[in-house]
């Protein structure tokens, strides 16, 4: 698949702090590419440079083969952007906004169909200020798509939404991708990245830590399984520690916690069965993208990075 966005050695600093230190990534046509990292990691600055809204200090960016700074007219026709900081006049109505923005493009999408698709038809005559957070986000997506772009950048789309609205928005994004639009999704929600992204870049402190599929990233982090259960009768730790797949056993109250590799669960249940011990309230904690992030960066995702705005 051809690359739609190519970023090489991007660097951008504001006054005294480095927002983006060294970011390189390639987005392929038709994929949902996630940019994931804690607040202040440089995600927004990266996409603002891709959208040509900021001039990088160093590095090269091409979007659909265009220079985002120099070829504004060409870029804005191919790239739809939903920005965190974007807004509309309070009294502008939904239909008016869509009609107005569609007039900015030489070959726009049908804004009425878009309004229907995004479930905004009932709000056509509602003023922007009177919309709920979820409705504003949906309008924001509609405005990013009204120019019928090949690529859409969606920045922190679901921040501030309740869980239901967030799930609805995810379904929408999948719908957008099925129209053939390549999507760059900026997020700091693991669940969102895991659910939506084909590939993602982990960004921390202005650098790309890893680029891979969500599954690839968790694998790469080589995180152990953690098995937790309450034995039906007393159990000698040695039974478990002697297993080659198990790396550690700890006790918490009446619970036993076993750490080990991918085969540990098999080995543990076999030993328990042989000794006629039932593992009550058995729980296996699988490595998540969250764990992968901690493993790869040494930092929690909801922790605020050193360059937080």
């Amino acid at each position: 698949m051809p690359a739609v966005i190519e970023v090489r050695n991007l660097r951008k600093r504001y006054d005294d702090k480095i927002a983006v230190d060294d970011v390189s990534l390639t987005v392929q046509e038709g994929e949902i590419f996630g940019i994931l990292g804690p607040n202040g990691a440089g995600k927004t600055t990266t996409v603002e440079c891709i959208a040509g809204l900021r001039t990088p200090d160093r590095g090269e960016i091409t979007v659909c083969g265009l220079d985002p700074r120099r070829d504004r007219a060409g870029l804005t026709r191919r790239l739809g952007v939903q920005l965190q900081a974007g807004c509309l006049p309070d009294r502008l109505q939904v239909a008016e906004a869509l009609e107005l923005y569609s007039s900015f493009y030489p070959a726009p999408a049908d804004w009425r169909a878009l309004m229907d698709d995004l479930g905004l038809a009932a709000k056509a005559k509602t003023a922007y200020a009177k919309l709920s957070g979820g409705q504003k986000q949906r309008l924001s997506i509609a405005l990013a798509l009204v120019g019928d772009p090949r690529v859409a950048i969606l920045d922190e789309l679901t921040t501030g939404l309740d869980p239901q609205a967030r799930r609805d928005t995810w379904a929408l994004i999948e719908g957008v991708r099925s129209r053939g639009v390549t999507i760059v999704l900026v997020t700091h929600f693991m669940e969102e990245a895991e659910r939506l992204c084909d590939r993602l870049a982990l960004i921390d402190a202005g650098r790309v830590v890893a680029v891979d599929t969500p599954a690839g990233l968790t694998e790469r982090a080589r995180i152990e399984q953690r098995i937790r259960f309450r034995p039906s009768r007393p159990l000698d730790d040695h039974l478990l520690t002697s297993l080659p797949d198990v790396s550690g056993v700890t006790r918490r109250g009446e619970f036993v916690i076993v750490d080990g590799n991918d085969n540990a669960l098999n080995a543990v249940t076999t030993v328990l069965a042989r000794n006629r011990i039932v593992a009550e309230r058995l729980r296996v904690e699988q490595a998540s993208l969250e764990d992968a992030f901690v493993e790869l960066t040494g930092r929690h995702l909801d922790a605020v990075g050193p360059d937080a705005k």
Binding site: A51, L53, T76, V81, C87, P89, Y101, F104, Y105
Partner: peptide, 16 residues
């Protein structure tokens, strides 16, 4: 418009 991001959104469109 500039302060609350109305212009910022327009900046992402072909309107100059």
């Amino acid at each position: 418009y500039r302060e609350n991001g109305v212009l910022r959104r327009m900046q992402t469109t072909p309107v100059g």
